[in-house]
Structure formats: structure tokens, C-alpha cells
Amino acid sequence: MTQIEIYLLAGAAMFCIGLYGLVVRPHLLHKVMGLNVMAVAVFLVLVSVARRVPGPTPDALPHAMVLTGIVVSVAATAYSLALIKRIYTETGAVTLQETDDDA
């Protein structure tokens, strides 16, 4: 079980945990956090894949992908939070109102 494989397993585990958070937690913020956990999990996998290259400098492509991924998930999370804030100010709801009639 090399070091990289441990990180890979950790990544996979975090992905499932993130998904669990997204699925089960009713609060919208928890869901967004779950999404971020999943994102970080993928980035962990990517970075650990980059490390499998022999020699000091890791493979640059996954790193670039991670960087781009981070920026994109930041943007997405920012928009989700703004949306949550807007929903809160408009309706005071913090969960996806399952009960509203015209869902």
C-alpha cells in the first residue's frame, strides 16, 4: 500500500462523505459544504496521481487541472451562497422547501 494509494483511498472516501452530506443534510449550507468536500476529494486524487511521476517535480498537468478546478468551484460556491442568501432574504427558508405546492 504505497503512500499515493493511501491518498487515493482518502480521496475516494472524502468524495463519498461529501456526497453523503449533499444527499442527507437538509440545510442548504451543508449541501454546499458537501459539494466543496467532494471537490477537494477530486483534487486530492488528481494531486496524488501527479505524484506518481519519478523525480522531484510532479506531473504539471494534474496540478493545472487542480488549479482550474479550484477557481471554478470557488466561482460556483460563491454563486450558490449568493443564491442561498437571496432565498433566505426573500423567504426565510434555509432548506429546499419540499412542501411548497408548485414544486
Binding site: 456526497l19 444527499v23 442527507v24 437538509p26 419540499e98 414544486a103
Partner: peptide
């Protein structure tokens, strides 16, 4: 359908 639309059920379906 309305039951299917609720988030928890739907996302469990995804999983």
C-alpha cells in the same frame, strides 16, 4: 412524482 421531486429521495436515487 411530487414525492420523487423531493431532494433527499432524488439524490439517493443518484447515488
Amino acid at each position: 412524482e411530487s414525492y420523487l421531486l423531493t431532494w433527499p429521495v432524488a439524490s439517493t436515487l443518484i447515488a
